[in-house]
């Protein structure tokens, strides 16, 4: 079994490297787009809390649409290929980031807002100097959750011709080649774990020192 695996790994090494690169690219692009949409949207929703809760509820339902169905809906518009995979995954990456942005900003204590306003900060200054720095660790945690999801779901991108480690896994499934399946699955898992670790460290690094202490209490 082990020899089998090593032999497959050896003969498919170039394919694996290419698929890994594509996988990273798809996941990274999707999460980046997702964050670009979700963070501003999340902030905007905190300004309208009545709509905010509803929008998040609706998006939670969208999140439950199986990826197969999502690809099915998108295919007629965007065709076969990587863009379809990225669009679908972007949609999935939005909710965790949006939810954390919304919660993070909403949870900033009113006393800070009141103090900022009373001292003559305008809305933009309160956002960038008070709300965002305090909420940033929570927002980055949202990005971390999203990244882990998307790296694992990106394996399905292969069915719309998106490429990535899913290609190798599906070949393995089609050929009843267990070594091949593992060769796709193990790097995907390792990638998810590593990413979660790295983004976790980023979340710590962006936590202002004063807040680290406060939370430690």
């Amino acid at each position: 079994m082990m020899n089998d695996f090593l032999a497959t790994l050896h003969s498919n090494w170039d394919r694996l490297v290419g698929a890994f690169g594509a996988h990273v690219q798809i996941a990274l692009t999707a999460v980046a787009f997702g964050a670009m949409i979700a963070v501003p949207l999340g902030i905007a929703l905190t300004r309208y809390p009545k709509i905010g809760q509803k929008v998040i509820a609706v998006l939670s339902i969208l999140q439950t649409i199986p990826s197969m169905v999502m690809f099915g809906i998108l295919l007629p518009f965007t065709g076969i290929g990587r863009p379809t995979a990225i669009i679908a995954l972007t949609l999935y990456s939005i909710l965790p980031i949006l939810r954390n942005t919304y919660t993070g900003i909403s949870d900033v204590s009113d006393s800070y807002i009141d103090a900022g306003k009373g001292m003559g900060m305008n809305g933009r200054q309160i956002l960038f100097r008070v709300e965002l720095p305090i909420a940033l660790p929570v927002i980055v945690t949202g990005i971390r959750i999203s990244s882990v999801y998307i790296i694992s779901w990106a394996t399905v991108a292969t069915i719309v011709g998106g490429g990535g480690l899913g290609d190798i896994i599906f070949i393995g499934v089609a050929r009843h080649n267990h070594a091949m399946i593992l060769m796709g699955a193990i790097p995907a898992s390792l990638l998810a774990i590593t990413t979660s670790f790295i983004v976790g460290r980023i979340a710590k690094a962006v936590t202002p020192r004063g807040l680290r202490r406060e939370r430690a209490r």
Binding site: S109, S111, Y112, D114, A115, G116, K117, G118, M119, G120, M121, N122, R129, V130, P133, I134, P208, G210, L211, E214
Partner: peptide, 20 residues
């Protein structure tokens, strides 16, 4: 905004920014 910058303001919850 200009008015508030000219008037000092202190609240019960203190409201020092924890990130600063």
């Amino acid at each position: 905004v200009d008015l508030r910058r000219r008037i000092g303001y202190v609240i019960q919850q203190i409201g020092l920014f924890p990130n600063m």
